[in-house]
Nucleic acid binder design. Structure first.
Lengths: 340, 340
DNA sequence: CAGTTGTGCGCAAACGTTTCCCACTCTTGG
DNA sequence: CCAAGAGTGGGAAACGTTTGCGCACAACTG
């Protein structure tokens, strides 16, 4: 097909080819390779030599048919494959790859029909398990139509059924890291600017922030969190607004890095030194934002890759009949840069 | 297992269950479902009823074993799954899903060992084909170790072997769109700021830009393109530099959107109206950059999703024994916003 | 009414493994 | 010298599907 030196064989050798070359039966060849069963070392060696000579590799389809499993897991992402699901996916792929398990990718784009379609496909392929992940941290209804006890792990957005296995980010602990960092640095007049009030991530983080401030007998400098959207533009507008209402604000804790970057832009344009006069802390550690901001942002890293990895490990456990039902919280990490 | 209403069946029905219930043989049941072979409509109906009653779905493993193919393609990404490979991946998944083909995800992280490992795995699983994609547009060596004529399509970064199938972005046409847009608006003193000189995307775009300017008897306002890195910081620095060397610059064409955003930041901070005094055009249409920039950036969209889609279609053609060797160029699109 | 055509459907092989069961060949001890 | 036992390895069934072949029976035709 191509004139290059790449190998282009017609069809791969099967176990009977190997057996024939080694002068044994297929069954013996199989046992020689699997290590089971007793046999003369010499015989086993002949089989191994034949394998090498023919470049034999077992047909996974056949193994799967016999074993009734596929050494494959489905990874369903509910809304595109974006900034959040990608690291989760990589973490999962990494952990699974170690166990000779491959990942089948299914993107539902938030469409229930598509989700059903993919689910049927996964069941038909006899996947060993399924990881469901979404962008939002809001709980989601469990997958409907899982047959034969195939285990499912929900990553990032937990299942509404507490009997399911979910792996999520520990927002409370993340907020505590941020608030403690600001308090320790002596900030007491803190504002909170975040995303839409209908996102769990926004309301949860706001709630935790107010709680931790209350623990230190403080409250938000403007009296309440500011809900908007996750954009830089909102961060810029919100900063203007907060500074008008409470000019003595000495810190902003933001619901994500884009908002935080918007806040720093407003501060810089007003000539307010960061972190000298006002400190800013973001959330997510999205490096395209945190590193490009001026100054680079101190932020909370939610360890998305770790979430994916743990989800995969929990799934492997469940596949091995050791399910750990419930919600598993993955701790976040404070990343200190120049903004606070 | 769970107290919710979800179906939890023990094991799925097989075709012999269906046949038994319908009172026919397995062979007949199979033919009834596949539509092949002649039979009494009444018999066929009985089989169909049995299928419904048992919620039968054929076991893909068995079908694959018989057919010698898996209705699966491997998608290898060479360096993480980032901003560039993700849309390609989605486009591919979309096009393949229509053909009942699923996607196996393999991330090599730029590691040759890992690439070999994944490739062997894919061959063992008898994938119907492979799509290889990378972040960089630089050509890459073809996959080594593809057996049995399994077709491979290279997306985004072409194969160095011209006999392979590659689907890439048409950088020349993209640059022409940008340059023409600037020229039509009357700009003649154009600067070009781009990424590292060891990236094909940077040097190619620079070369095309100079060529199209030459076609209009013009040259770059600073006499040469400015190579740096793909960051906002470089965009900001480069803008300072260009304005010092050639204060009468009336447009910046940038190698990507981050650089373009950096340029607009410098211009805004110097009080230079964009696009009133100086126009700015980016590249890639990365919306987190283009929409957040002030003003929102006019840019070139390389249609990554389309590249993925076409790569998948070419792969399907090749699987059907109609390979279209060579490099396929996907045209880009000018997205006009406020910066030019 | 015998022979031919045609329809409907069952049987079995095949895809490539794994594993159970059994037969054979040595060796060894009585 | 023969029987028992251990060590080897062959044969075949099974996983669940698809498909080629051929048989039985009905319906024509001459």
């Amino acid at each position: 097909m191509s004139e290059s030196g790449r190998t282009v064989t017609k069809a791969r050798a099967t176990l009977s080819d190997v057996a024939a070359l080694a002068g044994v039966s297929v069954g013996t060849a199989s046992r020689a390779l699997s290590g089971t069963g007793r046999m003369r070392p010499e015989t086993r060696q002949r089989v191994i030599d034949a394998v090498q000579a023919l470049d034999f590799r077992p047909n996974q389809q056949a193994q799967s048919l016999y074993a009734g499993r596929s050494w494959t897991v489905g990874l369903m992402t509910t809304d595109g494959i974006g900034r959040f699901s990608t690291p989760v996916l990589l973490g999962a792929e990494d952990a699974l790859g170690a166990g000779k398990i491959s990942v089948l990718l299914c993107d539902t784009r938030g469409d229930v029909i598509r989700e059903q379609h993919h689910l049927r496909n996964l069941m038909d392929r006899r996947v060993d398990g399924i990881i469901v992940t979404g962008r939002r941290t809001d709980p989601r209804p469990p997958l409907d139509g899982v047959h034969g006890g195939v285990p499912v792990v929900y990553a990032l957005s937990p299942s509404t059924d507490p009997a399911d296995i979910s792996v999520v980010s520990d927002d409370a602990q993340g907020c505590r890291l941020a608030v403690d960092h600001l308090l320790t640095a002596g900030h007491t007049r803190i504002a909170h600017v975040t995303g839409p009030a209908h996102h769990a991530a926004a309301v949860d983080r706001a709630r935790h922030t107010e709680r931790f401030l209350a623990d230190a007998s403080l409250q938000l400098v403007t009296g309440k969190p500011h809900f908007g959207d996750w954009s830089e533009a909102w961060g810029r507008r919100a900063a203007e607004m907060v500074l008008r209402t409470a000019p003595d604000t000495d810190a902003f804790f933001c619901g994500n890095d884009q908002i935080a970057r918007g806040v720093t832009d407003t501060l810089r344009e007003r000539g307010i030194p960061v972190p000298g006069a006002v400190a800013v802390v973001g959330y997510d550690n999205w490096e395209t934002m945190t590193l490009a901001a001026r100054p680079p942002l101190t932020t909370i890293d939610v360890n998305l890759t770790e979430i994916g990895r743990i989800a995969a490990l929990r799934l492997l456990d469940a596949i091995d009949n050791n399910p750990a039902p419930g919600v598993h919280m993955i701790p976040s990490r404070l990343v200190v840069r120049d903004s606070a």
